[in-house]
Amino acid sequence: MAEKRRTLRWWHILLAVLALAGAGVAFAYQRLSIPLPESALPADYRPDVKNGERMYFAGGCISCHRGIGPFVELPAGGRKMKIPGGEIVPPNITPDDETGIGKWRPIDFLNAMRRGLGPDGTHYIPAFPYTSYAWMRTEDILDLFAYLKTLEPVRNEVPLKTARLDRFALAFWKWLALPPRPFRDLPGKDALWNRGAYLVLGPGHCGECHTPRNGIFLLDRNRWLAGAPLLTEKGDAPSLRGLKKRKRYKDVNDLMQALKYGEAMGYEDLSAGGMGEVQSNLSRLPDADLKAIATYLMSLD
């Protein structure tokens, strides 16, 4: 008996610990890959397509998902995009049944936007900025989905390629990167400021370029919108803090005009590095939303 107990060596314990850890990681991966259930949707919701169109331009979906040739004004995908470590081709998000999101259900779209999960369980890479879209309200996401469904369906196959290991790692990264819940108004701030903060954090996903990232690519919330090196080309997304103090814009109205007209009205440096596209998209928003964005940004010290 004593002989038998002695055979329990240190490496037996190590093996047991490793096996347990492996099982834990596998379990965690499983848990992190579970999509939101149908019950996450509000009952009997009737989407507002007009508001969905607003979300479409606030998010600038077209700028990455832009089609090629005759489909240049539709988010039919297929254009190469440079990202750190390679190249991606954003997918077709027109409502084509076979090659687009025609067969998606609202819950599929909610999972994509809030969890970065595809209908087949794919963990999307964060070039699709779900880390910001997760701040969005369920209703706004469903409105956007309803708007996308009104677009002309384009048949354009864009295969999504993510390595298995990347997807595995992404599940854990997302657990760290995703905001815990959708945006809630800050009680001490007025409606205009809160609307602006919501548009900047959520649909506008401004932080994805304008906030620096740490070693594992998470946004550094202590330097929120403080400017960061661009990931797509050489150069920097400028700081959006202290715009007032630095006299970058005179007042809220001035910044609002800048977002609305950009360089067409002589506001310099709103075109390079992809900002021209952003500004074109923002110019499609109602003045009230642009004023909200300007109000929030001008309030940052």
């Binding site: 150069g235 920097d236 007209y261 067409a264 002589g266 075109s271 390079a272």
Partner: peptide, 23 residues
Amino acid sequence: AVMALGGEGCKACHEKFRKPKQK
């Protein structure tokens, strides 16, 4: 007329052919 020059001239060109600023 101002916005045609600024938009189709300044913006159109800087969007494609001007590097973003560097810190």
